[in-house]
Simulated assay, not measured.
Amino acid sequence: MTHKPKIALIIGSTRQSRWADVPARWMLSKMKARDDFDTELVDLRDYELPFFDEAASNMWIPSKDPRALRWQDKVQSYDGYVFVVAEYNRSITAALKNALDQDYVGWNNRPMGMVAYGTTGGARAAEHLRPIAVELQMVPVRSAVHIGGSDFYRVIPNNPQMEPIEALDPILANSVKDTLGQLSWYARVLKAAREADARQAA
């Protein structure tokens, strides 16, 4: 019997002054309120990954660095992912790209969604992340949560009248619902398919 999927909420920025903790905390509360999957917060700061320096992708050759192996074990323990995506110079962070590169096998056949933020709602970073995910054989869901423009300014610290991110709930409720609903559906379907493949291979 297929058990409830387990979804990782991955914080994709590691700099000390990051804002990512705010949308991560907010999205985590939305995910934990659902009963169709379990959720765990994963912070890239906790893994101290080196720049990718293996002989090849683990699609071809097993990795050797114990830090990479620890990360691969973590990645493979989930049935799907939501990435908290900061936009740096029109793309994703170097830390997130490196974390994606450190594994190949573990990402396969799992869905992914995004909470992206920045002046344009992190849209350009999100559109860079989607094809990376496809190459890693993830399934990007159609919807995403974008925090941008005047809404972004409302909730960031350099606004003297900063509001709590919960003030954006009425604006973002539909995109949260759509993103998590799609993610849940694909997580269940792909988890069942992976388990069926594993039984057949046994």
Rank of each mutant, 00 (worst) to 15 (best):
A201M: 13
D46E: 15
R70V: 05
L129F: 05
S63T: 15
Q137L: 13
A20C: 10
M112F: 13
E135M: 08
L9W: 02
V176E: 01
T2I: 14
D79G: 01
D53L: 00
L44F: 05
R124L: 15
A125C: 09
S57V: 04
L9P: 03
R110Q: 09
T39F: 04
M112C: 13
S91M: 14
D169Q: 00
E163L: 15
M27R: 12
V82C: 12
Q76P: 01
V176D: 01
M1F: 01
E135P: 03
N159E: 04
I156Q: 14
A198Q: 15
G149H: 08
V85K: 08
S143Y: 09
N89F: 04
I171T: 11
T93Y: 03
H3G: 07
I156H: 09
I147H: 00
D73L: 11
Q76K: 06
A167N: 09
L49Y: 02
H146S: 14
W71L: 00
R154E: 11
L41N: 07
L28R: 13
V22Q: 14
R34K: 14
V85N: 05
V82W: 10
A33C: 06
S57D: 05
M162Y: 00
N174I: 05
I165Q: 01
A192P: 09
R45L: 09
R18H: 05
W71V: 00
A192T: 10
Y47W: 15
Y153F: 12
E40W: 03
S175N: 02
P50L: 05
A86E: 15
H128W: 10
D178S: 14
V189T: 10
A133Y: 03
D65V: 01
V22N: 08
P111M: 11
W71K: 01
D65H: 06
A86F: 06
T179C: 06
A198H: 09
Q72P: 00
M27S: 09
V75A: 08
L100T: 01
R45A: 06
L100N: 03
G106Y: 09
S150P: 11
G122S: 11
R70Q: 13
G149M: 11
P131T: 08
N98C: 05
E163F: 00
A202P: 01
N109T: 04
P160K: 13
R130E: 03
S63L: 08
L168R: 01
Q137N: 13
Y81E: 06
V75L: 12
Y153A: 13
A173Y: 05
S13F: 04
W185F: 10
A193V: 10
P131M: 11
A126S: 15
I156Y: 04
I156K: 13
G80I: 03
R130M: 08
D73H: 13
T179R: 02
V115G: 06
T119N: 14
Y47E: 07
M27V: 05
G148V: 08
V82N: 10
A187K: 12
M27H: 04
T2G: 01
F83H: 11
Q200S: 10
R25H: 07
V176W: 03
A125G: 14
G80M: 06
A95Q: 07
A193P: 08
A99I: 03
N108F: 02
K64H: 12
E195G: 03
D101K: 05
L41K: 14
H3M: 12
